[in-house]
């Protein structure tokens, strides 16, 4: 294993800075920024008009549970795909490789710099969503549940795991847009669908799905949620699985390590043939 030197730390900083600049100026960043702000404002607007708020609940924690469980988790997946889905193919699939990969920086360090830049970019959008949640809670209840902090922590860990997962597709597919689209499809359609089938019908704990661990972002607001239950219906047994905090952390860290390592190895070893 190659050692990490002062050069690598400095290059990591340079790589992160320039990649973040790249993301910051890209159309996708500006587009998603406008979209995030509009969505947040729309939700806040509905909250201001009490009767229209579908999120209104008995207290701040219950409101935040509703706010973060209504599609916002899926939006996190889109964010991760947009910033991780072409992280590697942006070099390997374009002539950018002839510019970046001939500079005196280890590819693994370049990967880590990009990964950090992708995370910082998504952090901006996640923060906007949480600012909206705090503002809504303050307006409706004059207080914000302290559980928003662990929820935010889970959200950040979830983003790291999702970006790691998306980078795998950017390593597999040469065309940047394909990696991006496949990441979104997996995280929004394929994963939730398979997770639903194997957990609800087959009764298997879906610990292998990062989307399952991501549920902890809103479950944290519920003090007594059921971790496992079986319901006997007329036709079949229906199983319910919810992650515990520890379980969610383990799954997310597992995703970060496994998928980042695989992506990094592919990026380091890949030859530029085209």
């Amino acid at each position: 294993m190659a050692s990490i030197g002062a050069d690598d730390i400095r290059n990591y900083y340079v790589g992160t800075k320039f990649q973040f600049t790249y993301y910051f100026r890209s159309r996708r960043f500006i587009g998603l920024l406008i979209f995030s702000i509009l969505i947040t404002i729309l939700i806040l607007f509905l909250d201001l008009h009490y009767d229209y708020s579908a999120l209104k609940a008995e207290n701040s924690a219950a409101f935040l549970y509703n706010y973060l469980s209504n599609g916002i988790i899926a939006y996190f997946a889109i964010l991760a795909a947009f910033f991780g889905g072409d992280m590697i193919s942006m070099d390997l699939g374009t002539s950018t490789a002839f510019y970046t990969l001939v500079q005196p920086i280890k590819r693994s360090v370049l990967y880590l710099g990009r990964y950090t830049a992708a995370f910082l970019s998504t952090l901006a959008f996640v923060s906007i969503i949480y600012i909206g949640a705090i503002a809504g809670s303050l307006y409706l209840y004059r207080t914000v549940s302290a559980l928003i902090l662990p929820s935010f922590g889970f959200a950040l860990l979830y983003m790291l795991a999702l970006i790691s997962f998306a980078t795998l597709f950017s390593a597999i597919f040469k065309t940047p847009s394909i990696g991006l689209v496949v990441s979104i499809l997996f995280l929004i359609l394929v994963y939730p669908a398979i997770q639903g089938i194997i957990s609800a019908l087959a009764g298997i704990n879906p610990w292998m799905f990062v989307t399952y661990a991501g549920e902890m972002i809103y479950l944290v607001f519920s003090k007594n949620y059921v971790v496992y239950s079986v319901t006997h219906t007329q036709f079949a047994y229906l199983y319910t699985f919810n992650p515990t905090g520890d379980e969610a952390i383990l799954i997310m860290i597992g995703y970060i390590i496994v998928f980042s390592l695989v992506s990094m190895i592919v990026f380091t070893k890949k030859e530029i043939k085209g």
Partner: peptide, 11 residues
């Protein structure tokens, strides 16, 4: 300078 390199378009 190998082939026709292209720095990032937004740079």
């Amino acid at each position: 300078v190998i082939e026709s390199p292209s720095p990032f378009p937004y740079f």
